[in-house]
Design a protein around this nucleic acid. Structure first.
Length: 633
RNA sequence: GCCUCUGUAGCACAGCGGUAGUGCGCUACCUUGGUAAGGUAGAGGUCCCGAGUUCAAUUCUCGGCAGAGGCUCCA
């Protein structure tokens, strides 16, 4: 038989024509190989070679390999479900970041059914059924697949042929690639059941989506399960309860009740941002929550945002609760003639805004119906726009990286379908944001059609300790509102010019940011944000008087301090303080009483004895002042 | 809003067609203890709300409200 030359990584090999990746692996073992790249294109290991090519094996450790495993697992699940529920109609089932899912129509199952499906999947995996690829002409494919969803997909394809994969008696429309046989998928777990609209459109029927995870080893599955447990422990709703920060009540769905301790965190976040405003030449404004509908009609909110608003009547006139602060800032701007010398003009507004969110999207502090944004409207000349945006990006970087130690990424969201204004202004605004990002040399991705109705935006997503990402800050360029409200300023030439409005938030909403921060830190907030910064714990009753003295002194110094004077053992008091995430514990006993010193314990279990009160106060104040992320002595 | 699930003491959960338990927490007393749980006793519940089935509903059925996880949406 004829031989062909292939290039395998750095080696040149000669193999039989028609040999497959699996054949090559026999003589050239490659640990964990599950797919391969043929001249850079990802294909099955079972693909046969009929001409010279460069080959690279892809393993289950590579991202591409992981995706192959997840995708193969989706097919295995579909096969299992088809067997258990023959009337179910498979639609689509891709690999996703966290695993895979498959959507079915006509599948009526419950959470309890998942183990049954898992069991069936394990059988299929045990049987090591080969995945076989077959390319068929479109017409033939239309006959092969009876179900309407698959037909719909096939009809939209522009290729001549479509590729199908078969394992056992299950055939699916699929580009591939897949693992050679089902036995390659070593560990699977079905995680949740959900509803999902066909093609993600809420006008379409709701399908049943089954989510799962798949790995090439049991260890990886265990690791994943651990991560889930960790995430559950860090759930901010749970931490909020444990630390007595806030609660939710059915009397006000979607709006948190912040308790005294939670309110401290809330207010500290606002204080922090206000201090930054002061340094950066912002003016804070305080404005009404309820404004007349005439205002909302002029701003465009009536046409573009009404669904998300609450309305009321006062003296037979129609009013709406503000979902955004911009109209108020605009009214203040228009209150007097503005000169170019006054710009940029920055109106910060920490007012409550209300959004009538769908009940199904509410989620702890992450998604609420009433919240405060660290919102500001920058009125700038077109010339100042670029510089102002760059300064803002810098501000964002300072807050995320320097103060809170968050990684983040940026998306540029462009014109949505439901937008107002003409395309030219949109392009100009999008260009300005993109250019600023390039100039500050930050990478960003494009999120098409996700802009606000009045302008494109940069969205800042922060990454927490568990690698999850949250949208918080946003910078939006708006040419529309200045037009609608006929805003202007006197230029150096003595004529009127149109300003540009930049709408932006950095921490986003105080609520969401607090939730992210609680999960990121697992409740171990930096000292400056901790509701109780220091807890004093006398060891026996005879230390009480000394402890009270220390308590008063720290209070006088502005430290948030409390005392655990219960008749409990010191071990018990330490445990309680640990559980409530009190950053500094002062244990006061005979030694301290005698030497008039303090003994401190931090949450990491480190102890230090013999601290002088004055030194302690200085260290604590400095840590707070510098907004340090952690405490140490 | 839609899909699946859930709702029992402050919290975490058992339980059951005959109006309820456990642990932690709380209160009192004893204990005065050196870095993640000392002992004993006690208080605490409209079993989310409403209707239906039943001799009897916290339990079964239906409707509502709220929560969780998804989908769509979003700070």
């Amino acid at each position: 038989m004829a031989a062909i030359k292939i290039k395998l990584e750095k080696k040149e090999l000669e193999i039989k024509k028609g040999a497959s990746g699996l054949d090559i692996l026999k003589d050239n073992p490659h640990d964990g190989a599950i797919a391969m790249k043929l001249d850079g294109k990802l294909v099955d290991l079972t693909t046969t070679l009929d001409k010279s090519a460069a080959i690279e094996f892809v393993t289950s450790k590579d991202d591409e390999g992981k995706e192959v495993i997840k995708h193969s697992a989706a097919h295995i699940m579909a096969q299992a479900i088809k067997k258990l529920y023959p009337e179910a109609e498979p639609t689509i089932g891709p690999a996703i970041d966290t695993g895979f899912y498959y959507d079915f129509d006509n599948l009526k199952i419950q959470q309890e059914d998942l183990p049954k499906i898992e069991k069936e999947m394990k059988k299929i995996i045990h049987d090591k059924l080969p995945f076989t690829r077959k390319v068929v002409p479109l017409k033939e494919a239309l006959e092969m697949f009876k179900n309407k969803y698959k037909k719909e997909i096939i009809k939209e394809l522009t290729d001549k042929d479509v590729s199908t994969y078969k394992q056992g008696d299950f055939v699916d429309l699929c580009r591939g690639p897949h693992v050679p046989h089902t036995g390659y998928v070593k560990a699977i777990k079905l995680t949740k059941l959900a509803g999902a609209y066909w093609r993600g459109d809420s006008n379409n029927v709701m399908l049943t989506r089954v989510y799962g995870v798949a790995f090439a080893s049991k260890d990886e599955l265990n690791e994943y399960v651990k991560l889930l447990e960790e995430a559950e422990k860090r759930d901010h709703k749970k931490i909020g309860k444990q630390m007595d920060l806030f609660s939710f009540h059915e009397e006000a769905a979607g709006v948190p009740f912040f308790h005294p301790k939670g309110s401290i965190i809330y207010n500290e976040l606002l204080n922090f941002i206000r201090d930054e405003y002061f340094k950066r030449d912002y003016g804070e404004v305080v404005t009404p929550t309820i404004l007349k509908n005439t205002m909302w009609k002029q701003s465009g909110h009536w046409d573009h945002y009404r669904e998300d608003m609450y309305f009321t009547k006062i003296d037979k006139q129609d009013y709406g609760l503000k979902p955004m602060n911009c109209p108020a800032a605009i009214l203040i701007y228009k209150n007097s003639t503005k000169s170019y010398r006054q710009l940029p003009l920055r109106y910060a507004d920490c007012g409550f805004i209300h959004r009538n969110e769908l009940s199904g999207v509410l989620n702890g502090l992450f998604r609420v119906r009433r919240f405060i944004q660290d919102d500001c409207h920058h009125f700038v000349t077109p010339d100042q726009m670029g510089e102002e945006i760059k300064e803002l990006i810098d501000f964002v970087k300072y807050v995320y990286k320097d103060v809170f130690d968050f990684e983040f990424h940026v998306e540029l969201s462009t014109k949505p379908d439901k937008a107002m204004g003409d395309d030219k202004l949109w392009e100009q605004a999008e260009g300005a944001l993109g250019l600023a990002m390039k100039e500050v040399k930050l990478p960003f991705t494009i999120n098409p059609g996700d802009g606000a109705f009045y302008g494109p935006k940069l969205d800042f997503h922060i990454k927490d300790a568990l690698g999850r990402s949250w949208q918080c800050g946003t910078i939006q360029v708006d040419f529309q509102m200045p037009e609608r409200f006929d805003l202007n300023y006197e230029g150096p030439d003595g004529t009127k010019h149109r300003p540009v409005i930049i709408h932006r938030t950095i921490i986003g909403s105080v609520e969401r940011f607090m939730g992210v921060l609680l999960e990121h830190t697992a409740g171990r907030l930096p000292l400056w944000l901790s509701p109780v910064q220091v807890r004093i714990m006398p060891i026996a009753d005879r230390h009480l008087d000394y402890a009270k003295g220390v308590l008063e002194e720290l209070k006088k110094q502005g430290v948030r301090v409390d005392m655990d004077d219960r008749t409990e053992t010191i071990g018990k008091k330490v445990r309680d303080a640990q559980l409530h995430k009190v950053p500094i514990m002062l244990t006061l006993g005979d030694k301290e009483l005698e030497a008039k010193t303090l003994a401190a314990r931090t949450l990491d279990g480190k102890l230090k004895f013999g601290i002088k009160t004055a030194d302690f106060v200085n260290a604590v104040k400095q840590n707070i002042e510098e907004k340090k992320v952690s405490v140490s002595f």
